[in-house]
Amino acid sequence: MSEIPGPRYRHADDEEWREIRAQQHGERRVSVWEKWLEFSPNCMTLIGRWDPGMIVHKHGHNSHQVVYVLKGSMMCGDTLCTEGMHITLDEGAALGPLVAGPEGVELFEVMFGDPRSWPADPEGFEALLEERGAVKLPNPPLVFPDWIRDSRN
């Protein structure tokens, strides 16, 4: 008989912020930062912090996803998401584009399964960056678990 696994504990204060994406907005560099609390083939949980004005392309994940706004605000397409907003995406659903509010945004996210993302509107994203005078910078280097490849776009 196999043993039932027990709970795993991780405190967010014990994790380092990882820079995930970066853009240049005039003289200012803005980024998405994450603390990975769980990163396994079955589940990814993270706390995300986006600098003010950060723009993330419309995209979806290869899993079900839940996003909860802890602090600040962001536009999700035409919807303003403020503190306390809960967003549920079924596998295959796309969200965005996403734009962090003037104070930035802090999120708690859960992906149930493969956390890799796919772009939903690359041309629209390029047009939005140009409209706002933002330039996408190369993805910062990250070390991923050996079971998954870096698919950031």
Rank of each mutant, 00 (worst) to 15 (best):
K58S: 12
L142E: 11
W36P: 07
T82W: 01
I87L: 02
A100P: 05
F125G: 00
R21H: 13
E131D: 11
G124Q: 06
Y68H: 11
F108N: 05
V110Y: 11
L107N: 08
E103G: 02
D90N: 13
C81I: 00
V30H: 07
W33P: 09
G104N: 01
E16C: 09
L89Q: 15
G101L: 06
D146M: 03
M44V: 15
C81N: 00
T79Y: 07
Q65Y: 09
P41C: 03
S63W: 01
W33S: 13
P145K: 04
K58F: 03
D78S: 08
D146Q: 11
L80F: 00
I47C: 04
G101M: 01
E34C: 13
L95P: 05
L95N: 04
G113E: 07
W118C: 00
E19W: 07
L70N: 00
G77T: 00
G48A: 15
F112G: 12
R18W: 10
L142N: 06
C43L: 15
I47E: 07
N62C: 05
W50D: 09
R29E: 10
E103L: 05
L142K: 07
E103R: 10
R8Y: 13
P115E: 01
D146P: 12
F125D: 01
E38R: 15
P97L: 06
E131P: 08
G77D: 00
P115Q: 01
H25G: 09
W36H: 14
V66I: 11
V99K: 07
Y68F: 14
A94V: 15
E83H: 02
G133Y: 09
P119K: 07
Q24Y: 06
V105H: 01
L107F: 07
R29S: 05
S73L: 01
H25A: 14
V135C: 09
R10M: 08
Q65M: 14
D90H: 14
L70E: 05
G60H: 03
Q65I: 10
P138V: 01
P140D: 00
Y68W: 10
V143K: 14
E16A: 15
H61L: 06
M44G: 09
L37T: 03
R116K: 05
G104R: 03
E106Y: 03
S40A: 12
V30G: 05
L98E: 02
E34A: 15
L46M: 15
T88G: 08
E126Q: 09
Y68C: 05
K71Q: 11
